[in-house]
Design a protein around this nucleic acid. Structure first.
Length: 896
RNA sequence: GGGCGCAUAGCUCAGUGGUAGAGCACUGUGUUCACACCGCAGGGGUCGCAGGUUCAAACCCUGCUGCGCCCA
């Protein structure tokens, strides 16, 4: 197959992805091989691929493809998340657009509509993952609402309940009045907003005076149950135990002593509304109010409802909380009890999805005892059972888990895993995996199921084991068994749990990663993954956060269309340094598209010169220094790449292969072998060179495959007939025996020699095409041998012809390389001043370094205390720089 | 208030003790039979500031300044 003159990524990508998937190459049968496992952070089933996914999934694909090339049984578990609130919101919005709402339908009808939407749009993101080249195990794609996974979710709920780690409780919850559901602490965003601080004067019941309180939420006074003062506060000691008669409601409430009241803040006395404030809830409990007795004045939409004592005037009922606020303030002012109003910045909680102001609300919800589950999760990271990369995140992880609160897992939604709890007529709860089992527990009483669903993160926490056979395959064999040798017989769960690596953005460290660790340890008895790699956010080129509202999002599909998936993947990999956000500049993507084009053209050159597929994994035998050199460079690249990938240094791995391909292989090796392949050259040398070049190119393609899967597969086949596709090829061997220091020194010298001559020519404005004779002066025997051996390459690349004898008298450029000086006569055309300046500049540079090294060596403390290698290197460098300065000085002197 | 991180060439970033690096951008030059999405050559940095440790500091320690993120 002839390689086209132009590189067209789009055509290649479509072809190879289908080929890989149709032939099952993402998960070849390798029952005896060492397992390697990653589970994808499941994207929202109805979502679409954004640049953050592109980064996250590229990083995973690099590791999976690398592991597959290393011969491992690489499994990348793929699937999608039902994304409870987000998905339900989308469908509700669609209904609203048609002038209907969720409650116009039965729960079953509505859920059917969500499934319809899932069928309609559910394939989008998985199609887009394919465009990116993600080599996931599509044959076993999972969904958090599918039957098997749902079974795992129910089992976890029931087991945790039976173990006392999951319970129903009445306490304040973060209530989202927009979505009308409870949400967890993590789903609340606190923002600073400009508000007011109202100071009220509450009259004492006995008419003996009044007490001042201040509040940022005056409407809650309709449900006040106490006024608290600090027990140490002398001003109020006499009032403790007395009662206050509230304005508007006339409710009699006690003045209580509580540490929560800060004497320094406001008047030092605070109103207590246990049913509508987290701090007040705790004060109320200490004051002896049971949660069930705490007054509630709001409904699910945060409108005023009558409190249990019936004291709220009728004209307040049904008001929105913010209207009620105005009315309360007006009424208090009318009574002359508004002392003052101050402007104040208020920390206000918002729902991260709805952006509604969150209302602390007293309800019955299901809670997970996160504190208990957190202990082993903390220990797993402390002990190193899970390695966190970058390590600095461990502190954040510890801090969160050490202060973890009960996790509210029930949501007042219809879309999701319905909670497996049933109630009898008396409100007694029965938790079981299905209604029959619950009924048995209830002794056949009539039951109704809890209408709520579970937090989506409750289910996704089970992803590392719920996707690979748990609970069905659990308990067959301990996980150690397959490692002891029973690989072929072990279940999928045993082979692939624990997973090897989890890659996620740091933004879901608490939401997902930590909860997977908690649930994995609890249900599997082992960590879910051995390494947790956290990457940053992808930002716009100017560093701002990408957001739809700002309109500065970058569409990964658009970049793929424009530059190819390989270029996008390489960009994201090269820019991924541990612990830093990525500022994505399209210029970088363009640059890596150029890199792909460079490789494409190098392969075209190879093909045009009879260089093709290599027949061996091991390097071919080679005599020529240039071939021995490039083999050594290849091996060094494999070593560096293996190290970088093992350390999860993506930037380093990408840069290593980039530099090798462009600089070593294209700029030097291919140029150096052109004369060897030219007509009339030695046939044996040409054959050796073709074999070596073909081998190196093959190693390049394999090493580059994890980063640029499409172009490498295309070129792999274009360069010859293959027994297998590159996706399942063999990773290069890093065989140190192939490294030949003598050849390396020789080519290193050659590169320096050519570079020096080129620089001199440019510096003296010698026309690029002009060929000059060159007379070697003071060259050692070894240098003369090298000059002879590489004469053709030197002639071609430096455009000089080595001449015998002494240089003729007259103006000449002089180039110093090591001990030798090369004299390039320029018969009158040379600008002698320019040459003097050029030499003087070189002398100055060499002398500066020589003197600096001399000063260091003259310091006895350095020679005594520094490492011997450092002293040795300083001596060698000093000698080298001295020689260079001397040689250049002699050359300058000869110019006169 | 607590925690984490960042400050290195015009830009984006590597570099964690031994003579400052890459890509892009910039300047000059070149249509030599893979590639102008290219080649060749070049300019450009008191490594935020101030102390300290060390024979030696961009790198380790302390403080300061500025910026970002998370938690309360």
């Amino acid at each position: 197959m002839t390689i086209d003159k132009t590189f067209d990524p789009a055509a290649i990508e479509a072809r190879w992805y289908a080929h890989w998937e149709d032939n099952g190459l993402f998960r070849p049968e390798r029952p005896e091989a060492e397992p390697y496992t990653i589970v994808i952070p499941p994207p929202n089933v109805t979502g679409s691929l954004h640049i953050g996914h592109a980064l996250d999934d590229t990083l995973q694909d690099v590791l999976i493809r690398h592991a597959r090339l290393k011969g491992k049984d690489a499994l990348w578990v793929v699937g999608t998340d039902h994304a409870g609130i987000a998905t339900q919101m989308v469908v509700e919005r669609q209904l609203n657009a048609q002038g209907r709402k969720r409650t116009d339908f039965t729960r079953e009808q509505f859920i059917a509509k969500v499934w319809e939407w899932k069928e309609e749009s559910g394939g989008t993101i998985t199609r887009q993952l394919r465009r990116l080249g993600a080599s996931c195990d599509w044959a076993n794609e999972r969904f958090t609402m599918d039957e098997g996974f749902s079974k795992a979710v129910l089992k976890v709920f029931v087991d945790l309940y039976n173990q006392g780690l999951l319970y129903r409780d009445k306490r304040l919850v973060n209530w989202d009045p927009g979505l009308k559901t409870a949400i967890s602490d993590l789903e609340v965003e606190t923002k600073e907003v400009q508000g007011s601080f109202w100071h009220f004067s509450y009259p004492l019941a006995d008419g003996s005076g009044a007490i001042s309180v201040a509040t940022t939420r005056p409407e809650t006074m309709l449900a006040d149950m106490a006024v608290a003062v600090n027990p140490e506060d002398g001003r109020y000691r006499a009032l403790i135990g007395k009662s206050v008669k509230l304005p508007i409601t006339g409710r009699l409430i006690p003045i209580v002593a509580d540490e929560h009241a800060d004497p320094e803040l406001g008047s030092g006395a605070v109103k207590i509304t246990p049913g509508h404030d987290f701090n007040d809830f705790e004060v109320g409990k200490r004051a002896g109010f049971k949660p069930a007795e705490m007054l509630n004045m709001l409904d699910a939409e945060a409108k005023v409802v009558q409190t249990a004592d019936g004291l709220i005037p009728a004209d307040y009922l049904g008001l929105d909380r913010f209207e009620a606020r105005k009315k309360v303030v007006a009424a208090i002012e009318a009574e002359g009890r508004l002392e003052k109003v101050e402007d104040r910045v208020i920390q206000t909680p918002y729902g991260d999805r709805s952006n509604a102001v969150i209302e602390p609300w007293l309800t019955d919800q299901w809670y997970v005892d996160a504190e208990t589950l957190a202990k082993p999760a903390l220990e797993a990271v402390r002990s190193g059972a899970i390695k966190v990369v970058p390590e600095s995140w461990t502190k954040t992880y510890y801090n969160w888990l050490e202060n973890i609160q009960p996790w509210c897992v029930s949501r007042q939604l219809w879309w999701g895993h319905q909670i497996p709890a049933w109630y009898d007529a008396d409100g007694q709860v029965y938790v079981a995996e299905d209604e029959a089992a619950a009924s048995a527990l209830a002794g056949g009483k009539a039951l109704s199921r809890d209408p709520d669903v579970l937090d989506t993160w409750f289910s996704s926490a089970l992803w590392p084991f719920g996707t690979i056979g748990w609970p069905d395959q659990a308990g067959q064999q301990p996980p150690e068994a397959y490692r002891a040798g029973g690989a072929g017989k072990a279940s999928k769960l045993q082979r692939h749990y624990p997973n090897d690596v989890l890659i996620s953005g740091f933004d879901i460290l608490f939401f997902w990663d930590a909860r997977m660790i908690m649930q994995g340890l609890h249900f599997m008895g082992e960590v879910p993954f051995r390494t947790l790699y956290l990457h940053g956010l992808v930002r716009a080129a100017d560093g701002s956060k990408m957001s739809k509202s700002k309109g500065n999002t970058v569409d990964p599909l658009g970049l793929i269309d424009k530059y190819g998936a390989d270029a996008l993947r390489f960009t994201l990999t090269a820019m991924e340094s541990q612990g830093r956000d990525i500022k994505l500049d399209e210029k970088r993507v363009e640059g890596y598209r150029n890199f792909a084009t460079k490789l494409w053209n190098a392969a075209r050159f190879a093909q045009g010169n009879g260089i093709g597929a290599s027949s061996s994994i091991e390097p071919p035998r080679a005599e020529l220094a240039v071939n021995r050199w490039i083999i050594a460079e290849t091996v060094k690249t494999v070593q560096a790449l293996d190290l970088a990938i093992a350390d999860l240094r993506y930037d380093e791995s990408a840069n290593t292969i980039y530099h090798f391909v462009w600089a070593s292989f294209c700029d030097w090796y291919l140029e150096l072998i052109k004369p060897v392949l030219a007509e009339g050259a030695d046939p044996a040398q040409a054959a050796e060179t073709r074999a070596v070049a073909g081998w190196v190119l093959d190693q390049i393609l394999v090493m580059l495959h994890p980063f640029m899967p499409f172009i490498t597969e295309e070129l792999w086949h274009a360069l010859g007939t293959r027994d297998y596709d590159i996706i399942v090829a063999t990773w290069p061997m890093a065989d140190a025996r192939a490294i030949d220091p003598a050849a390396q020194q020789e080519i290193d010298w050659l590169i320096r020699m050519v570079s020096e001559v080129r620089a001199a020519r440019t510096g003296l404005n010698v026309p690029p095409g002009a060929r000059l004779p060159a007379y070697a002066r003071g060259a050692s025997e070894e240098t003369r041998r090298r000059l002879a051996a590489n004469a053709v390459a030197i002639a071609r690349m430096a455009r000089i012809d080595l001449a015998e004898g002494d240089a003729p008298a007259g103006g000449a450029a002089q180039v110093v390389v090591d001990e030798a000086t090369y004299v390039l006569p320029l018969e009158g055309v040379i600008d002698l001043d320019a040459e003097r300046a050029r030499l003087a500049k070189g002398i100055a540079a060499a002398e500066k370094e020589r003197d600096s090294l001399a000063a260091r060596l003259a310091n006895p403390a350095f020679v005594e205390k520094a490492k011997p290698e450092a002293v040795e290197k300083a001596r060698a460098d000093h000698a080298e720089k001295s020689l260079e300065a001397e040689q250049l000085g002699a050359a300058l002197a000869r110019l006169g």
